[in-house]
Design a protein around this nucleic acid. Structure first.
Lengths: 177, 177
DNA sequence: TATTGTTATACTCTATAACTATA
DNA sequence: TATAGTTATAGAGTATAACAATA
C-alpha cells in the first residue's frame, strides 16, 4: 500500500490559516460522524430529561426498571453497560426520590428487587414523551423509514462485536500456543 | 393520546427478576442506539490509537492540523467542538512530542499557526490506517453502501440542528416569511 | 470460594471563570 | 474594548480495587 494521502477526494491543503476548515482523515470514519450526531441527540435528550430532574443515564435506568419489574441492580448494570459501583448512586437517587423501591429478596438476601412506584411510573411516562419529542426535533430531516434504517444499522454495529469479538491482534498473526 | 404503554410491540413485563431483560422506552430512541454503537466504535478506535500513544481527541486534532496546515488553535477548537482551554493541553502534548509546531504569527502576535512535523505526519498516517482497520473490524456486518448511507444519515442529524436551530416553543406557530 | 451490593477513589472528558498579552 | 491563548478548577461520566454480607 502506498504512503497514504489523508483523503483521496478532498482538495489540496491550503498554504496557511484557511477560513474554511477541511476535514482530515477523520471525516470518513464512522466513529467520528457517530460521535457528532450523538452529541446533538444527547444534548436534546439531556435538556428534556432535565425538566424532570433526571439525567439521561438515570432515565435509562428508570425505563428499564419500568419494563422489568423486579430486576436486580446487577442485571440492570450489565444490561445498560454501567459499572455496578456507578449504578449504586443512580439507584440511590431514584429510591430517595421515591421513584423506585428496593426490596431485599428472601431467597437470596444478597440481592435486591427493583420496582417502580406509581410516582416513578408517571414521571417516566412524562419524561419519555418529552425526550421522544426532543429527539423528533433533531430528526426532522429524516423520514420514518430513514430512522428505522438508522436504528437497524446502529444495532448491527452493536451486535457485530458481541457476536464476533475477534481482536485485531488475533487477526494479523497466528494465535499463541 | 392514551396513557402510553412503554412499548407497543413488546411483550408484557414479566412478574419478577427476568433472566432475559426487556428494553424499556429507550430502545426505540435513536440517541440510545447511537450511544451504544458509538461505545463499540470508540473503544476500537481508542485501542488502535493507544498503540501510537494517542487518545482519540488527540488524533482528531492531529488529523485536522495535517489537513489544514497553519490552522489556529481557535479555529481548530471551534471546528472539533472542543473548548479552547481543553484544546490547549492537547496541543501542548502534540508539541512536546514534536508531532506539531506552534509558530507565532507576525501579523497578529496573539495568534499561533499549527503545522505538523514530518514525524507527526508519519505517526498520523500510521495511526489513521490502524484506526480505519479497527473500525472495519466493527463494521463487518455493513457493506460499503450501508456505511455510506449510515454516514449520510448521521450527517443529516448533525447538520439539521446547526441549520435549523428551531426551539420547540417556536415550532408551534407558522414559519416566518 | 464466589457473588451482590457497596464504598472510596481515580481517571477521562468536558465546561466555566478569569487571567495575560496583544490588538 | 475585544480577542487569542492560557491557567485553574469544577463537574459529569466512567473505571478499578477492596470491603461486608451472604451464599
Amino acid at each position: 500500500m502506498p504512503r497514504a494521502r489523508s483523503n483521496s477526494t478532498a482538495p489540496t491543503p491550503s498554504a496557511s490559516s484557511p477560513d474554511t476548515v477541511f476535514e482530515g482523515a477523520i471525516r470518513g470514519m464512522v466513529g467520528y460522524n457517530l460521535k457528532r450526531a450523538y452529541i446533538v441527540l444527547h444534548a436534546a435528550a439531556r435538556a428534556a430529561a432535565e425538566d424532570f430532574g433526571l439525567r439521561v443515564p438515570t432515565f435509562s435506568c428508570l425505563s428499564v426498571i419500568v419494563r422489568n419489574p423486579g430486576i436486580t441492580p446487577s442485571a440492570l448494570a450489565e444490561h445498560l453497560k454501567i459499572e455496578r459501583p456507578n449504578l449504586v448512586v443512580i439507584v440511590d437517587e431514584l429510591e430517595t426520590r421515591e421513584l423506585i423501591r428496593r426490596t431485599q429478596m428472601k431467597t437470596d438476601r444478597r440481592r435486591y428487587e427493583l420496582t417502580v412506584t406509581v410516582r416513578g411510573r408517571r414521571l417516566h411516562d412524562q419524561a419519555a414523551e418529552a425526550i421522544r419529542d426532543a429527539e423528533a426535533q433533531c430528526l426532522q430531516g429524516l423520514g420514518a423509514e430513514d430512522q428505522a434504517r438508522l436504528i437497524d444499522l446502529l444495532n448491527k454495529i452493536e451486535n457485530a462485536m458481541t457476536e464476533a469479538p475477534v481482536s485485531a491482534a488475533e487477526h494479523t498473526g497466528p494465535p499463541p500456543p
